[in-house]
Computed example of a mutant assay.
Amino acid sequence: MKSKIKIITAIILLIYISILSIYKNDRKEQALYRYKIITDSTDLAPEDFMRVAEIWTRHDAGIKTGLTLLNSQDPEVRTYIDRHSSWIREKFNNPDKSLFIHELYHVKLAKAIAKDLNEKINFYGYDRNTSLTKLGIYQEKLNYLQGKYDSESNHSRNKLMQAYWEYKIDSLNNFGRHYNINDEVSVFFPTPPKVQVWQFSDDTLYGKSAIVNQLEFIILKLNPSEIDSAYLVDYFANRIFRENNKYNNIDFYSIPNNSILFGYSKDTINRIETHNNLIVDSQFNFYLARYVFPYFEEQDSTLIKVGERFFDSIKFKSDSIPPKTT
């Protein structure tokens, strides 16, 4: 009987040692991939969520990001993901991937903070010790902003604030860049814009546009053949602003910042709001600036403020004198 117990005990011990060895090797192998450094060509991927989903939380996902300092001679800050502390409940990840996108913007926020610190290091010529000190300060700033992002967006459940934070984070990453529409006009987009083409039966308009979440920003160069006020009202108010009979609130008056016509519309069927701004440069070239956003249940003036920032970012290389519209 005792010999059987010894044999069983030995077998159990061997099994335990084998399992422990496999576990240790597996952990050692996983440790090689625990931290992922984010570069210009890499981003968050589904396989980066290596941790088993938390069971003692009401949240459906979690990600841990941080800042690290590379190089000793020329310090460079990079964002990293702690994969072992990142998890997602796939069954809650909607077909639109809203949960994954929310976590992705945590990474983009960390990249924006790293970019800001790198610019400071390069501008002031910080050595490694000073850079390490600044790194700690910026890590605290990042932690604060990550918490604020989660709180205001309610972990992506507040669609309005999620859209706003995506715009804000993209703008931080694209900060300082203006894109030329032509030699006279440039504008800031939260993300690199694409060429925009509007095709009419007798005209083609070109410009640029960018989309962040469900927010769209557009600027087009227009081609009116006259600058007579009656013609402008007919061309812009009836043709551009009222396309598809959507635009029913048009005010024709002079307002600052090169704007001569402003209009907005609310498409209650598709639940879309559109704001248009007609602007003119010193050479009497006309441009249509537009931002479009959806209705949300908790709608307020937040997204309108975002759109107005887009309008305000339009810059002319020379002073503009709007034509008289009498």
Rank of each mutant, 00 (worst) to 15 (best):
residue 1 M to W: 07
residue 7 I to M: 13
residue 13 L to K: 06
residue 18 S to H: 12
residue 29 E to D: 11
residue 34 R to L: 07
residue 35 Y to V: 15
residue 38 I to D: 08
residue 42 T to W: 01
residue 44 L to H: 04
residue 44 L to M: 02
residue 44 L to T: 14
residue 45 A to M: 05
residue 58 R to H: 12
residue 80 Y to F: 12
residue 81 I to V: 04
residue 83 R to A: 14
residue 83 R to I: 14
residue 88 I to A: 06
residue 89 R to M: 12
residue 91 K to Y: 06
residue 91 K to T: 10
residue 92 F to W: 11
residue 93 N to E: 02
residue 98 S to K: 08
residue 100 F to G: 12
residue 103 E to C: 07
residue 109 L to S: 14
residue 111 K to W: 02
residue 111 K to D: 13
residue 112 A to H: 05
residue 115 K to R: 10
residue 119 E to Y: 02
residue 137 I to A: 06
residue 156 S to W: 03
residue 159 K to H: 10
residue 161 M to C: 09
residue 162 Q to K: 15
residue 166 E to R: 08
residue 166 E to T: 08
residue 178 H to P: 05
residue 179 Y to I: 06
residue 180 N to R: 01
residue 181 I to E: 13
residue 181 I to T: 12
residue 188 F to N: 09
residue 188 F to H: 10
residue 193 P to M: 07
residue 198 W to K: 15
residue 198 W to A: 15
residue 199 Q to E: 07
residue 199 Q to N: 03
residue 204 T to E: 08
residue 223 N to H: 07
residue 224 P to L: 05
residue 227 I to G: 03
residue 228 D to M: 00
residue 233 V to L: 10
residue 239 R to P: 04
residue 256 P to C: 03
residue 271 R to A: 14
residue 276 N to W: 00
residue 282 S to K: 08
residue 291 Y to R: 02
residue 296 F to V: 10
residue 298 E to C: 04
residue 298 E to K: 01
residue 303 L to V: 05
residue 305 K to A: 15
residue 308 E to I: 02
residue 311 F to M: 03
residue 316 F to L: 09
residue 323 P to Q: 03
